[in-house]
Simulated assay, not measured.
Amino acid sequence: MAPLVVHVTGARPNFPKAAPVLQALSAYPVEQLLVHTGQHYDDAMSEVFFRQLGIPKPDVNLGVGSGAHGAQTAKVMEALEELFTQRRPDLVVVYGDVNSTVAAALVASKMGITFAHVEAGLRSFDMTMPEEINRLVTDKLSDLLLTTSTDAIAHLGNEGTAPEKIHFVGNPMIDTLLTHRERFDAAAVRAELGIEGDYLVATLHRPGNVDDPDDVRALVAAMHAVADQAQVVIPLHPRGRARLEDAGFLDHPGMRVVDPLGYLEFMGLVRGSVGVVTDSGGVQEETTILGVPCLTLRPNTERPVTITHGTNQLVTRDTLAERVREILAAGKLTQWPTPPLWDGHAGERIAAVLASSLGAVRP
């Protein structure tokens, strides 16, 4: 009987990472089961990604929905424990740093099931971020740590991780981006949304930006100063939307809020922009490959390679408008560095590591 590999996904950032791994591993004599926890459950945040990226329909959808961190994590753990009892995997693969990731790690570890963490070793060193806690716990328990960058290897080494557990494989999300890049149609997205002229894209949802009323007011003022220079298109995450609107976020003619977009539409929007303002991790990586200037509105990043080998820079609310002014003055980039192994073949390298751990030989 072929060994069973269970992939656990739960939120938008997981899907572009899982797609190339699923495809590459299909070349080996293993059975794969794709689990969607339902942590993101509306169409624009989950289902549309399966359609657009050619990912098979999830074999299991746990449908846990939203909720407080503890409650959501507990729901995923309970459902996965039941699933793993019914169909015990030989290997579990988790992605990224969302609540579904750490929930699956805890269940697999407690049940004595080998598991691999794709995107291991990233660190912001900011313990106020729920994602940082998820990263630390998941990596501590992981049997196979699959890293996207050399700084991640260093972090794991400093934490005492056995070297034989660590594998530098590159970034599978970049595989997905490069595979679909020619489908990122900026002109079509412009026409669909009625955008004319130069524009910036913004994605803002982190608690440090949208939870505290004082932070929200400061964010609105900073973004209005950006909109004084160029129109801003923001697919607004459900988290924090009401607070932003109540604080007058839309009280500027240059601010344009749209509903969350599918992967292809969002990447088309980014590709056609003059720059991006974000607090998202994945967007820092995507802009690094597309050559779009990225201003990360956070005091830190768990992806420093996007600064040293990409288009990203950290900004504060006080410095944001000036950095935008510099981007607009510089114009479109014609060349920029990119990180090692962000070459479109990470999925193949990950599949080789996973298959080797199972003793599965490619025909």
Score class of each variant (00 low, 15 high):
residue 84 F to I: 01
residue 69 H to D: 02
residue 351 A to Y: 07
residue 125 F to S: 14
residue 306 T to I: 07
residue 250 L to G: 11
residue 202 A to S: 15
residue 204 L to S: 03
residue 331 G to V: 06
residue 38 G to L: 11
residue 75 K to M: 02
residue 363 P to L: 06
residue 268 G to Q: 03
residue 318 D to S: 13
residue 279 D to P: 01
residue 1 M to G: 13
residue 154 A to L: 15
residue 232 V to C: 10
residue 290 L to N: 06
residue 85 T to N: 07
residue 90 D to Q: 12
residue 11 A to W: 03
residue 163 P to G: 10
residue 194 G to A: 02
residue 105 A to C: 14
residue 114 T to K: 14
residue 361 V to P: 07
residue 91 L to C: 08
residue 299 P to W: 02
residue 314 L to I: 07
residue 187 A to V: 09
residue 225 A to G: 09
residue 69 H to C: 00
residue 226 V to I: 02
residue 155 H to C: 10
residue 18 A to L: 08
residue 69 H to F: 10
residue 189 V to G: 10
residue 348 E to S: 09
residue 289 I to M: 05
residue 287 T to L: 01
residue 286 E to G: 06
residue 30 V to F: 12
residue 220 V to L: 05
residue 205 H to L: 01
residue 168 F to W: 13
residue 185 D to A: 10
residue 249 F to C: 08
residue 140 K to L: 14
residue 12 R to D: 05
residue 104 A to I: 01
residue 305 V to G: 01
residue 292 V to A: 00
residue 212 D to T: 05
residue 94 V to K: 01
residue 35 V to T: 06
residue 277 V to T: 08
residue 357 S to D: 06
residue 212 D to A: 15
residue 109 S to H: 09
residue 45 M to V: 07
residue 136 L to R: 14
residue 204 L to Q: 01
residue 298 R to Y: 11
residue 272 G to Q: 00
residue 58 P to D: 03
residue 298 R to C: 10
residue 210 V to H: 11
residue 242 A to P: 00
residue 312 N to V: 00
residue 223 M to P: 03
residue 174 I to E: 05
residue 127 M to L: 13
residue 22 L to N: 12
residue 253 P to L: 11
residue 73 T to P: 10
residue 108 A to H: 02
residue 239 R to W: 00
residue 322 E to W: 02
residue 55 I to D: 07
residue 89 P to L: 04
residue 295 L to T: 11
residue 92 V to H: 05
residue 281 G to F: 05
residue 269 L to T: 04
residue 330 A to H: 10
residue 249 F to H: 02
residue 42 D to H: 12
residue 176 T to L: 13
residue 335 Q to N: 13
residue 42 D to R: 06
residue 228 D to A: 02
residue 243 R to M: 04
residue 114 T to L: 09
residue 210 V to S: 13
residue 358 L to Y: 04
residue 275 G to V: 04
residue 68 A to Y: 11
residue 238 P to N: 05
residue 179 T to L: 15
residue 289 I to P: 03
residue 208 G to S: 15
residue 74 A to P: 06
residue 360 A to T: 06
